[in-house]
Simulated assay, not measured.
Amino acid sequence: MQSHIINIVIVDDHPIVIEGLKIMLSHKPFFHLSKTFNNGGEVIQFIKSNEVDIILLDISLPDISGIQLCEEIKKVSPNTSVIMFSNRSERSIIMQCIQNGASGYLLKNVSLEELMECFHGALSGNIVFCNETKNIISKPSPQELTTTPRLTKREKQILQFLAKGKTSNEIADELFLSPLTVDTHRKNLLQKFGAKNSAELVHIAVQQNMILE
């Protein structure tokens, strides 16, 4: 039996989503909508001076990725349950959110009953998903079933530069290496990931959450 008020913050840049959630929560006793934000800029400052139990957080915000903001929120307020609330249904995105400290991941077509169940589950310390999200995470892509290769520090650096579209010569200048050395590392990366070229290499690395898209 709920006995105390649960303070909720919503971060979403779609006014219609916020208004819909306001109406839904207004009919639920013990749940108090403390504040809404349409971008991530002021969220951290707010939670520093206000007790927040749950943050319902969209991934696509105008000023910051919700995935990154989730990580920052958890650093400032570890006890706040951050539940991602998005239309993005890629398994890799969902898993990245959980790795960044999210207490759950809900798609925006979630029912009110599922939403309430997930709120209670997160407050009990569980990682929560709506039914559709459960189906998504139960079916990993072929790339995700592949064991993540072990990379050296230098290979990780070069992988990040390749993801930015840098050439071997540009990477060599950045890292004070010879282009031949960079090419050798690149070939090793292709072999470790089983990729035919740099574009495929970067795609697989993104799928395995080794670099950000």
Score class of each variant (00 low, 15 high):
69 L>F: 07
96 Q>P: 00
19 E>A: 13
51 E>V: 08
57 L>Y: 10
55 I>C: 04
89 S>A: 14
119 F>Q: 06
58 D>N: 08
30 F>Q: 12
72 E>S: 10
50 N>R: 02
42 E>G: 12
104 G>M: 03
121 G>E: 13
58 D>P: 03
110 V>N: 03
36 T>Y: 11
62 P>W: 10
109 N>P: 00
101 G>E: 11
82 V>D: 02
89 S>W: 01
113 E>N: 04
46 F>Y: 15
45 Q>Y: 09
68 Q>F: 02
18 I>M: 03
42 E>S: 13
65 S>C: 10
34 S>H: 04
35 K>G: 04
45 Q>G: 12
51 E>D: 12
101 G>T: 06
70 C>S: 12
43 V>C: 09
79 N>K: 14
97 C>H: 06
34 S>W: 02
56 L>Y: 04
119 F>G: 06
12 D>Y: 01
106 L>S: 03
13 D>V: 04
38 N>P: 00
121 G>H: 10
80 T>Q: 04
72 E>F: 03
70 C>L: 10
34 S>L: 14
117 E>T: 13
83 I>W: 02
77 S>N: 14
98 I>V: 14
110 V>G: 01
105 Y>P: 13
49 S>V: 13
44 I>K: 15
39 N>D: 15
53 D>T: 02
15 P>Y: 00
36 T>F: 09
36 T>S: 15
116 M>L: 15
51 E>G: 05
23 I>W: 01
98 I>S: 06
85 F>N: 10
100 N>V: 01
24 M>K: 07
47 I>N: 07
23 I>S: 10
68 Q>S: 11
36 T>Q: 06
48 K>M: 10
17 V>E: 05
14 H>P: 01
26 S>D: 14
106 L>P: 05
63 D>S: 13
